[in-house]
Amino acid sequence: MLTARAQLLNESLFWATFWLPHYAFGDFDSVRHRMFDILREGIGAKDLEAAAIPLTLEEALDAAPLQSPFMRIATRLINEHGYKGASVDRIMREMNLTKGSFYHHNEAKDDLILECFRESYRRLTRLQRAVDARGGTRWQRLENAIASVLVLQFASDHPLLRSTALQAMPAALRAEALELSNREALWLGALSWTACGRGPCA
């Protein structure tokens, strides 16, 4: 639990560098209070019961399949060893292919990282649709979406690419990956806003 909390704090600080510039300096104090309130108390009201019913692993993989063994291995190695640790040689060695095979499909390693982000975004979108199709209140859908992503991330060898890969990407390529991440954040933000009594719930 402490490791999970430390990871949550680390991710929050990492992403703050991207969303904080949207606020005026005069708003920073209230933003700070709100951010730490969410970290301390969570986004749900006290009377909301935690009763997530995530997709099963089979349902999650069926909703968000990862067809390419190349993308699966590359994503896993980048998650495990970081941008620099997941070298082209390491990826190709695990796939029993030559480095020439890699450059036949990718101009550079950065292109591979960006394609991994694109594939993760496509899979997240499919997962969202599967969760929405099950119905429920917005709070239940929010819980189920987050829990289903965790199932996909930790209970299978078909994970999504972690955001830490962004740190080493060139700025030109990072912009597209950030735009995809922002779309996910807006979707979750819309659910949490209405689910927690801050807007019209459905």
Rank of each mutant, 00 (worst) to 15 (best):
R72D: 03
A74H: 00
A74S: 15
T75I: 13
T75N: 03
T75F: 03
I78V: 15
I78R: 04
N79C: 08
E80M: 13
E80T: 14
H81Q: 05
G82Y: 07
G82V: 10
G82P: 09
Y83I: 13
Y83A: 12
Y83F: 13
K84V: 14
K84C: 00
K84H: 14
G85K: 07
G85S: 04
G85C: 13
A86M: 07
S87L: 08
V88T: 07
R90I: 06
I91R: 06
I91S: 02
M92C: 15
R93D: 13
R93K: 15
R93F: 12
E94W: 04
T98D: 07
T98L: 00
G100S: 15
G100H: 08
S101I: 09
Y103F: 14
H104N: 13
H105M: 00
N106D: 04
A108V: 12
K109M: 05
D110W: 00
D111M: 03
E115F: 02
C116M: 12
F117S: 00
R118G: 13
R118Q: 15
Y121N: 06
R126H: 11
R126W: 05
R126F: 06
Q128W: 09
V131M: 05
V131K: 02
A133V: 11
R134L: 08
G135M: 11
G135H: 08
G135Y: 07
G135W: 11
G136D: 07
G136T: 05
T137K: 06
Q140S: 12
Q140V: 09
Q140L: 08
Q140C: 05
L142T: 04
E143T: 01
N144C: 09
N144M: 12
A145V: 00
S148Q: 10
V149H: 01
F154K: 00
F154R: 15
S156N: 11
D157L: 14
L160E: 02
L161K: 01
L161P: 02
R162I: 10
S163F: 06
T164L: 08
A165S: 10
L166S: 10
L166E: 11
L166I: 13
